[in-house]
């Protein structure tokens, strides 16, 4: 029996189904890709921690190999963040709230252009220009602040240090953080900005009262996106850094990062060898670090949900 209630717009229903199937499969595809990456890394890194002829588990040997690289990666990314985040937030604020409208568009384009430069170009620039340019600064730091372990040790004569790599990474992640922050700053409700202004806030006070609280989650997301890129960046670091042993000094040559180690080591590792498994295993470690960083970011963002302005 058909009544007016059971009859429906057939074409509309079909469209709805197709679209929902599309979105579900897109979502599943992402999860599958991720799962396969994790599976591939895990399976192939088995040889790095288990060798029959060396008496079974060799976890300590692997950890001894991996921890300097982990620390090097974190140091380089941390330097990049410290340098890039404040500048990025400042540039984004200038574009969204200070610059005259016509100028702000232009600056936005230029910043986005920075993201379009291939990382190998950054690497070449860091190696042949920035590194040598920083040599005198390293010398000065060593002479005047040498008592701090960070600036102890012989300053590098080529400038190809972990600090230079961090600076290059900082420039590379600047556009990502800037564009995320700019987008979110622009979306600050006029209502909240005017609430602050009407109470007698100066522009900077208005930004502190309305823009930053509103954008807090967005700023953190932007920084985490930047950090993700810094952690995984390969070419630039491989070119800039002359890798070596782990050292506390930022201005001596030495240290290395996981992506650079993989990029430099992989072509020379025989397929199926322990060395290859080792490189894949540190890849897995990087994967886990990135995962951890992202989850921490989510957690930070969700902690203040009640006060986020979303309700």
């Amino acid at each position: 029996m058909t009544s007016s209630l059971t009859q429906s717009d057939k074409r509309g229903v079909a469209g709805d189904r197709v679209f929902s199937a599309l979105t579900v499969s897109a979502g599943v595809l992402i999860l599958l890709t991720l799962a396969f990456v994790a599976l591939f890394l895990t399976v192939n890194s088995r040889d790095a921690v288990y060798q029959e002829d060396q008496g079974g588990w060799i976890l300590t040997a692997f950890l001894d190999y991996a921890y300097p690289l982990v620390i090097g990666t974190l140091i380089a990314s941390f330097i990049a963040l410290i340098l890039a985040a404040p500048v990025a937030v400042g540039v984004a604020l200038y574009i969204s709230h200070y610059a005259p409208p016509r100028l702000s568009k232009g600056i936005g384009y230029v910043i986005d252009l920075l993201a379009a430069i291939p990382s190998v170009v950054y690497g070449a620039w860091g190696m042949s220009f920035l590194g040598p340019a920083l040599i005198p600064i390293y010398g000065w730091l060593h002479e005047n602040l040498g008592f701090i372990p960070l600036f102890a040790g012989d300053p590098s004569q080529t400038g190809r240090t972990i600090f230079t790599a961090g600076v290059v990474l900082g420039v590379m992640i600047l556009p990502i953080i800037t564009s995320v922050c700019r987008e979110i700053f622009i979306q600050t409700p006029k209502l909240h900005e005017e609430a602050a202004l009407a109470l007698g806030a100066t522009r900077w006070e208005m930004i502190k009262m309305s823009v930053f609280p509103f954008a807090r989650a967005g700023i953190i997301s932007g920084i985490m996106l930047g950090l993700g890129r810094a952690l995984g960046e390969t070419m630039a670091v491989a070119l800039v850094l002359s890798p070596g042993m782990l050292t506390a000094s930022l201005i001596s040559s030495g240290n290395s990062t996981i992506p650079a180690e993989i990029a430099l080591g992989f072509p020379e590792a025989p397929p199926g060898s322990e060395r290859q498994a080792q490189l894949i295993a540190i890849g897995l470690v990087l994967f886990l670090i990135t995962l951890l960083v992202n989850m921490t970011a989510r957690w930070i963002v969700s902690r203040h949900k009640e006060f986020s302005g979303a309700n």
């Binding site: 409700p189 209502l191 909240h192 005017e194 806030a201 609280p213 302005g309």
Partner: peptide
């Protein structure tokens, strides 16, 4: 203008308490 606004307060069309406060 900042001084003016401390002496002349304003209430808006839509309620706008600071959401993070």
């Amino acid at each position: 203008p900042v001084t003016v606004r401390t002496q002349v307060g304003m209430v808006f069309q839509r309620p706008n308490p600071f959401p993070t406060m």
